[in-house]
Design a protein around this nucleic acid. Structure first.
Lengths: 120, 120
DNA sequence: TCCATATTTCATGGATTAGTGAAGTATAAG
DNA sequence: CTTATACTTCACTAATCCATGAAATATGGA
């Protein structure tokens, strides 16, 4: 990931409405959610929601597919992983002082050697 | 870390000048750098630099201390670690699909069991 | 075809952000 | 005490962001 992409991603997430959307879609998983359902869940006007989804999509953090009249948005896990990787690796140089706390969660969710724990 | 703090941090980093400052200070380590040295290194006007440093400081990502006529800024590693932890844990729910790439770097910089590698 | 639903696009206005010249504050040196 | 250095603060403008009403587009059903 390049620096400009990282900045676009950070900007997209640096907004309470958009961060809420992203978090909701992470919880929703690969199946994603229809734009209207997201709007109702977060109590946001349809056009406002559309603009917010566009920003996240343009940052590559969301994928979109049409299903009938609805458009289903889903979090792009790979892209988010790349952003986090950029922050730890390129931005922070993998300093132990910074990424030590991450080791714990990486350990929990992605055991390095043995079988991976199911998570949902 | 709370969501509003995370947003403040993301906003602070979502700017090319400020991200460059932060990266420079991460490289500089705990000793930090004087505001003027940062400004010269990044070819930025003094007052512009001051404003950018203020944003990062207000987000808690930098610490500042006076040394004679200079003011020394340093990256707050703990805070950055907390931001990354928020993004992986609270925002992304520690999903393996997202944090798997992080496991590698966490593995490299912070070995879980054995002695930690020195890193300059 | 006509209508309802789902979402987006456009236009607008208000709020926030960002860079800069000029002035102000703090420290050090002569 | 005066002057220089190091930064910050202030005032201002340009640019960008953001929410919203209104209109447009796309799909599905009667």
């Amino acid at each position: 990931m390049e620096m400009t992409d990282a900045i676009t991603g950070l900007s997209a997430l640096a907004h309470d409405g958009r961060l809420a959307i992203f978090r909701l879609l992470v919880k929703a998983g690969p199946d994603g959610m229809a734009a209207g359902d997201i709007a109702r869940k977060l109590d946001t006007a349809a056009n406002t929601m559309s603009a917010q989804l566009l920003v996240l999509s343009n940052a590559g953090l969301l994928t979109a597919r049409r299903d009938g009249r609805s458009i289903i948005y889903a979090a792009d896990f790979e892209r988010m992983g790349a952003l986090l990787l950029y922050l730890t690796e390129d931005c922070c140089g993998g300093k132990p002082e910074i990424c030590a706390p991450l080791a714990a969660i990486a350990q929990t969710c992605c055991p390095p050697k043995k079988a991976r724990r199911a998570n949902a």
